[in-house]
Design a binder for these strands. Sequence first.
DNA 1: TCCAATTCATGCATTTTTGTATATCAGAGG
DNA 2: CCTCTGATATACAAAAATGCATGAATTGGA
Lengths: 294, 294
Amino acid sequence: MNWNTVSFDWNQARAFLVTAEEGSLSAAARSLRLTQPTLGRQVAALEERLGVTLFERVGRSLTLTQSGLDLLHHVRGMGEAAGRFSLAASGQSQTIEGHVSITATNMMATFHLPPVFKKIREMAPEIELEILASSEVRDLRRREADIAIRHGRPEHPELIAKLVGETTAHLYGASEHLDAVGRPMHPDDISDADFIGFGDPTEYLPYLTDIGLPLTRENFKTTTNSGTVILALMRQGFGLSMLTRQDADLAEGIEQVLPDLDPIPIPIWLVTHRELHTSRRIRLVFDLLAEELS
Amino acid sequence: MNWNTVSFDWNQARAFLVTAEEGSLSAAARSLRLTQPTLGRQVAALEERLGVTLFERVGRSLTLTQSGLDLLHHVRGMGEAAGRFSLAASGQSQTIEGHVSITATNMMATFHLPPVFKKIREMAPEIELEILASSEVRDLRRREADIAIRHGRPEHPELIAKLVGETTAHLYGASEHLDAVGRPMHPDDISDADFIGFGDPTEYLPYLTDIGLPLTRENFKTTTNSGTVILALMRQGFGLSMLTRQDADLAEGIEQVLPDLDPIPIPIWLVTHRELHTSRRIRLVFDLLAEELS
DNA sequence: TCCAATTCATGCATTTTTGTATATCAGAGG
DNA sequence: CCTCTGATATACAAAAATGCATGAATTGGA
């Protein structure tokens, strides 16, 4: 086998990739936890070695040359393979100590997870837990987290999901707000009410109409992707919202509306990457989460 | 973008790849022009970092663990991308100084190319020429050489080829041998003669029968992939062979047989990788070769 | 069985790489 | 017009990686 072609410094290729993608040496240095001079020198050394000018030093920033642009495609390939390697390696890791990151909604992370995390910490203190309370859905395929707690079944074949439980959502409003606009006594009373949506209302509107709420897209004057923001908005009188009972119980000044309504079931899925499920460490956390959330 | 997954040391991945492919740290070190302790430490550091045992140290050699085997696939991907990157970068290189490797048959390299190389050296002394006089056909796609001189048109779309000239092959024999077996006067006289084949005779046998030589596979009692070996064998009385006039003229004790036979045209193709043709340095050598060989 | 060759591991000196601190420069905004 | 922020480049010290020399162990063959 002829290894001449691959015997250049692969870290320099990495420096080139991240610098090009991030747009500056400084940003690349931050991403890789290196320093800007280091990245600068690695990129310069690569240019020297290849005999190709990759970046044009214009003013305060670097712009890719045409050659750099052409070559970037190839180091992207290296980077993607590196990512897959890293992912698979994490999955192969059988060490119990180390880092596990979990992502969940703000609400989940704030109101449900702390006791579970405490239990994990007691049972496996050598595991470093990172909690990404995030309103965005983290992309497990890009390894933005090791485990995700979601309320919908992920469809991607690379991911494995386990339905660990179910909570229920009910209709709530801030007491102060209800004092002002009046408490609805019948589902039909709320056809003109203001609602605060969690994410895109069209996704769950059918479930609301199914239980007899005469709502349309128009009722959702306000939407947010943050549960805590919903609570704040409710207290400010922006309207009503669906919340899980656990969330509502823990929040002040919130009361249930139309308690006789059927509750809306909210599934709780535990999701991880197929590759990661073989990791002893991640498996442990996954299983503990599954047990505790059931 | 999340670069955590790629922020491991890529050179360690390279060490893993080459060690696994070569089968030992020492061999990998030779391939990468590093030392065995360096490779050993890089692989150990990777194992440490990933928390995965890649190799089982058994006796004097390393064997891949199952994990290592699973992960090897991914670093192969990195390696392939690295190779493509390197190839493309060589093509982008606009520096005139540097290394260019040319492969040709022994005969070509011995008898035809030296004066051409001298000219290249005079015109571009800053180019380091490497001459791979090789009987095997080097694989340009694996970058075993930058430019190849071949006698057949390469069919691969990644390669670009230019027909730069044509030489002719004629029938020769060693004088001493002919003294012993007699000089044939008519093509039919050689139906029982021994022939020394260059490579696989079936590939060019049709050309020989076309010019009236009553030969079959059976006549080729001896074959070799080396032109110089053919000359040596001819002198040892192993039989007759087709040679180019230039080769035969430069060899002692060889004389033409049946000079009235039609010569067999032998095309001379200059071949390089599509990516490399954009390199100023390689382009220069390519063009000079094309000019001189015409 | 013993020898030669080849392997990986380790201690130490050297070389190389990296980080820190700093200088310089360009652009945005008051 | 000036300041402030954030960019790259550079000098020098610190840290890390590398190579060399060597040792120990194993294989293959005389």
